[in-house]
């Protein structure tokens, strides 16, 4: 009998605290991308609502309920996390398991936006990028997904293989923010 052990992308790298900011790895969960087939988005949305109480997210938005999150993840795509996808969803959408594809971290603390301003060319001001807002964007040459979880808390996702670079880059930005005092 073979026994394989699991390792998370940031297992040896996090958590990390610099000044008022903390970077930690989000506990792994099932993550599945849903891409509705032509003409199926409404049906998918209805199925999602029936199953999870969550409707298909508008671009750049996410919704969450009872530990299940539905995150807009790009063109014709949303990321369902926190629950295994209902088999019936595949009638309406292509389902792809991405539970292992991404490094998922959380940056929290006063000045989190200032740290991200050193990493991403996107507008994350609280007046523009509110709780639950999400963006697919560049993070120091990496394809990223950034979501605001709270007033000073963001979820950051990059490809799993880039976890080490992500941690280094975010750490450098955290240090720069801390040094400004």
């Amino acid at each position: 009998m073979v026994e394989l052990s699991a390792k998370t992308p940031c297992a040896d790298l996090l958590p990390l605290t610099v000044g008022a900011l903390t970077l930690s790895e989000v506990a792994p969960t099932v993550m599945t991308t849903l891409s509705p087939y032509e003409g199926c988005r409404d049906a998918l949305s209805a199925a999602l609502e029936a199953r999870y109480g969550l409707r298909w997210p508008k671009p750049n938005r996410s919704t969450a309920k009872a530990g299940v999150r539905l995150l807009w993840f790009g063109r014709d795509m949303a990321l369902l996390s926190g629950a295994a996808p209902d088999r019936g969803l595949s009638d309406h959408a292509a389902l792809v398991d991405q539970s292992d594809g991404w490094a998922v971290v959380q940056l929290s603390g006063a000045g989190a936006e200032d740290a991200l301003a050193r990493l991403c060319p996107v507008d994350l001001r609280p007046s523009v990028f509110k709780r639950g807002h999400t963006a697919r964007c560049d993070l120091r040459h990496m394809m990223a997904s950034i979501t605001r979880l709270g007033p000073a808390s963001f979820q950051i996702m990059v490809f799993r293989s880039m976890a080490e670079t992500l941690v280094e880059d975010v750490k450098t930005a955290m240090e720069a923010v801390a040094a400004r005092g």
């Binding site: 509705p36 032509e38 003409g39 199926c40 988005r41 409404d42 049906a43 998918l44 949305s45 409707r55 298909w56 508008k58 671009p59 063109r75 014709d76």
Partner: peptide, 9 residues
Amino acid sequence: PEDADGGSA
């Protein structure tokens, strides 16, 4: 264009 027929957005 994103799926206009299935448009819930």
